[in-house]
Nucleic acid binder design. Structure first.
Lengths: 137, 137
DNA sequence: CTTTACGTTGACGTAAACGTCAATTTCGGC
DNA sequence: GCCGAAATTGACGTTTACGTCAACGTAAAG
């Protein structure tokens, strides 16, 4: 039998809710809300929530999804696409289908962005010209 | 003096609200809502709204902005950035500042998108491998 | 033991972006 | 002149994503 001084299976680095909140510049309320929606499932120390590396990673993904304008429901689906959790062949094929749907949306979004960036840069150039003209006169 | 048969200054092609609605697969309610928010200002024929080429263009921009996850308030600002309407030098400089702020947001968004696309494609590859493995056995 | 700070669970409030319904109005066709 | 289809203006309902108390637990500090 192993000695009595067994080490805890990795003293994983953890975070409190307010640490994560201030790190990502959001409120604790928001983080709890994401948990209500099952986007996060932190462990507990008594009542207090304890977030690990994985939780922090998921939170990062959530915020990135938000910057892209996705709903929390969308983001929830996308988070699933990041996990293996694949069981049967059907599950895998289904996962692949979902991923491809997401990719289609994302690529449309990239096209939109490139267009807007291009047009805004053009307009910015026009304004610059306008300014230069009045300046050179 | 010019003849009495002056031609109308271009019989611009126009659209009804339901034409635009079906073309862009949205509801007339949404289009009126955009008008409430001053994103559109169609002419009127009596009570009926009459949309011109310019209105249609703005609507297109609105929907593109929506696909990118911007709020109507954001989109309203961005629409202004498309117009010259520049008055004084101060206005122009201000316009340029706003454009650059928008560009910063958009470029961050593009970075986010590229990351997500990359990661999802990677996961898609993993799933494919998983399927192939079980297939080759 | 009391204070102070942080954390927790409801519960209600709110802004955005429409959906939905009701009560007209308008217009081309017969 | 009447009808039905399409439009219009309120007005209220709904969903999403939190904000904002309120009331309470708890752990460290003095």
């Amino acid at each position: 039998m192993p000695g009595p001084d067994v080490v805890e299976p990795s003293a994983e680095l953890t975070y409190t809710i307010s640490e994560l909140a201030s790190e990502f510049a959001i409120t604790a309320r928001a983080i709890r809300f994401y948990e209500d929606k099952n986007l996060l499932q932190p462990r507990r120390n008594g009542l207090a929530r304890v977030y690990g590396r994985r939780d922090r990673g998921r939170l990062k993904l959530i915020l990135r999804g938000k910057r892209l304008g996705f709903t929390l429901s969308d983001i929830s689906e996308m988070l699933d696409l990041y996990d293996p959790h694949g069981e049967g062949r059907n599950q895998l094929r289904l996962a692949q289908a979902k991923i491809n749907k997401r990719l289609a949306v994302l690529k449309q979004q990239r096209r939109d962005i490139d267009e807007v960036i291009g047009e805004l840069q053009e307009n910015c150039g026009l304004v610059t010209a306008q300014l230069d003209q009045n300046n050179g006169a």
